[in-house]
Design a protein around this nucleic acid. Structure first.
Length: 161
DNA sequence: GCCAACGTTGGC
DNA sequence: GCCAACGTTGGC
């Protein structure tokens, strides 16, 4: 992108942490801890401050893009990997060279109506989107600019109806 | 380096 | 709760 801003999608189970939880967080900001997948981690490491994020509700009814957030802090070590009592504890991670990172994201907006997976699948312009690929499980994934624009357009169409 | 076993994700 | 589609682990 000319302005250097990139687009991403991050998944969260709303029962665990929803977009409303994000909105209610201090300064609308949270650290995205718990990612334990290398591909997802690498995408977080590529994030820049100001990058835009689609906040996706997985394991929801219906699964849907719920709104928008933005990156406010680039990747830094995820403390939960060293916490024995945390479910994301990783005994194999070396404190001198932490294996897992997180970023901070801030709430931007919640869509008037969440954009369901079904709705997204029905869009010709979103054919190649990683989220819609069969068997896709990546919890942090890149979004192409054209896909981003299409999703935002859909959100506006929903808001007007 | 192969691959079977196992664990996880996430839609349905 | 089921199960497809992964990713990881560890024996060999």
């Amino acid at each position: 992108m000319a302005d250097g801003r990139h687009y991403w999608l991050m998944k969260s189970e709303p029962e665990v942490f929803s977009i409303d939880d994000l909105a209610r967080s201090p300064k609308g900001t949270t650290s995205w801890d718990g990612v334990r997948n290398y591909q997802a981690r690498n995408f977080m490491r590529a994030m820049k401050v100001g990058d835009q994020v689609l906040f996706y509700h997985s394991n929801a009814n219906p699964p849907a893009v719920a709104g928008v957030a933005e990156v406010v802090k680039t990747a830094y070590p995820d403390a939960t990997q060293f916490d024995k009592r945390d479910t994301h504890y990783d005994p194999a991670s070396n404190p001198d060279e932490p294996r897992w990172d997180m970023v901070d994201i801030r709430f931007i907006r919640k869509f008037v109506a969440p954009l369901s997976l079904d709705l997204l699948r029905a869009q010709a312009g979103l054919k190649g989107m990683e989220l819609l690929r069969k068997g896709s499980r990546l919890s942090v994934q890149p979004v192409r600019a054209a896909e981003w624009n299409e999703v935002i357009r859909l959100a506006e169409v929903q808001a007007d109806s």
